[in-house]
Design a protein around this nucleic acid. Sequence first.
DNA 1: CATTACCCTACTAAGCCGATAGGTTAAATC
DNA 2: GATTTAACCTATCGGCTTAGTAGGGTAATG
Lengths: 150, 150
Amino acid sequence: MILVHMRLSARVDYAIRAVIELATIEPVVAGKPPAEFPITSERIAKAQEIPPKFLESILLQLRRGGVVNAQRGPEGGYWLARPADQISLAQVIEIIDGPLSQVRGHVPAELDYQGPARTLQEVWVAVEAQERRMLEQVTFAHLASGQLPF
Amino acid sequence: MILVHMRLSARVDYAIRAVIELATIEPVVAGKPPAEFPITSERIAKAQEIPPKFLESILLQLRRGGVVNAQRGPEGGYWLARPADQISLAQVIEIIDGPLSQVRGHVPAELDYQGPARTLQEVWVAVEAQERRMLEQVTFAHLASGQLPF
DNA sequence: CATTACCCTACTAAGCCGATAGGTTAAATC
DNA sequence: GATTTAACCTATCGGCTTAGTAGGGTAATG
């Protein structure tokens, strides 16, 4: 929401933590299932204390968004579709919650302010740009390693 | 809100535009009513196309927050409680919508992440700080004059 | 073919949001 | 002092979103 208002939904928070969990366990090569078993939804749910069925629907969304792959059956589970350093926070947030910035349901660029309020639009656009810059910069490789780029 | 998600509610959007309107009409000296009449809620509502009764409740909130003063009766209305260059965007946003940044209803500093997700908290805190820096920097003097500090 | 774990749709309770209704109180005017 | 004006204040409401659950379908393994 920001903003301009950074308001993170439970859904996004859970999604990010789930991806971190996948990025932490083991490195991924070109989106192939890892040498060991993939990680089950249930295991992630326990590790991060996320309601199991809720997480399931989030992982489904992440798969459709191209962030994770999945396999069914025994020894099934989830793994990252790309190396962790090619998945940014911004990507996961937008897959789950839609566009980063909104003002009354509209993206800042398409607002139609009157008179002196017009300068306001420039502010929202600038804040959004700054926010986007940060969130695109941080990858899940950073998060998994605990090393931030700032 | 962001974020991390810049999500601006209609309420905040209206509040900001109302304060811009007050800041634009005439300068304020030490919170005293202006030489001419104060500006009525109805006039602001028309100028900025805001639902009148909704705006009324917003102005009430702004008065309780110390941003505007009001006077009742004929020739009554609203005016800025301080000079426009001493009212920041951040102040108005927080008066109307509460804390700038929230993650699942909590402010970033009081989150309790487990294991590798702990680094995440640093990200939220950093994003919030950056956002706050911008929004505290922009005052309604800037907005009224159309000159942004960046 | 039985088990496991993902897939998918539908649903629900609760809360928030935008907005309105309608009356109360204070200040100015006549 | 009666009237008018405009702010003050509370309550309410419909609609949407959010967080979370239920329950069955489907693919992979052995």
